[in-house]
Amino acid sequence: MATVLVVTSGKGGVGKTTSTAALGAALAQSGQNVVVVDFDVGLRNLDLVMGAERRVVFDLINVVQGDAKLPQALIRDKRIDTLSLLPASQTRDKDALTAEGVERVIGELRERFDWVICDSPAGIERGATLAMRHADAAVVVTNPEVSSVRDSDRIIGMLDSKTAKAEKGERIEKHLLLTRYDPVRATRGEMLKTEDVLEILSIPLLGIIPESEEVLRSSNLGTPVTLGNPNSPAGRAYFEAARRLKGETLVVTVPAERKSIMGRLFGRRAVA
C-alpha cells in the first residue's frame, strides 16, 4: 500500500525541496520504491537538487494533460535504482494543473511506488493545495523563526480542512521537520527552541535538521545529502527522519558535528 506524502511549509526557502530529495533518497536506499514529484510548476528545482536537470524531457503537466505517458516522464535516478523523479514544467503556469489530472496521476503513481513524495511550492495557492490534495501524510518543514512558524500553522490548518482525507472526515498524519536548527543559538535564547515550536504547532516531531554546510554542498553537487554525505549531521538526521516515517520509534536528537580536538579549539565558524 503506497503512502502519498506532501512536503509543505507555506513559507519559501525553508528547505522543502532539499528535504524532499534527502528523505526520498534515504527511503529509496532502504529498499523502498520512491518517486519524488515536483509540484512547483514554473519554478521547478527538484530536478536540480536531485542532479537530473539535464535529463528532463516530459514533465508533470505533460502527464496531467495526457501529452505524455507516465513512464515517459519518470526519470530514474542513476545512483539508486529505486528512486525516480517526476519533474515539474518550467514553461507552463500553475493553472495547467487540473484537479482531475492530478488525481489520476497520483493514482497511477500509487500503483507503481511505495512512496509518492510531493514537493509543494511555497504559498497557499493552487500548486500548494493540489500538492497536498491527495496526501495520506504531510511533512511540515519549519525553520525556528517567527514567520516560518506562523506560515506552518496556516498550512496545518489547510491540511486539516482542504485535503481529500480531511473532507472525508479522516485525519491526515502530520509531522514536523525542524530545519536549519542551531542548537547553540537555541540554548543561548537567540533562537526558538524545539520545544517552543512543538508547543505552538502541536504536531509530532519527525526530526531536527541542524544548520549545516553539507546541505548547501549537496545542492551545489546535485546529490541529496543522504546520498552524498550520509554520515554528516544533516545526513544522519534525515536518515532518522526517514526511519520514523516508516513507523520506527527513535528518540529525536540533534546530530552534532564530529569535531577533532583541533577543530574544537579553532573551529569557530565565521558567520556570513
Binding site: 523563526e145 496556516r154 480542512s161 537567540e190 505552538i200
Partner: peptide, 24 residues
C-alpha cells in the same frame, strides 16, 4: 541582550491564538 527567543515565542502564541479562531 540576546534573549529574543522568549519574545518570539510569546508573540507567536498570541498571534496564532487569534488567527486560528478567525480562520474562515
Amino acid at each position: 541582550r540576546n534573549n529574543s527567543a522568549p519574545v518570539a515565542r510569546e508573540r507567536l502564541q498570541v498571534l496564532l491564538a487569534h488567527e486560528r479562531a478567525f480562520v474562515g
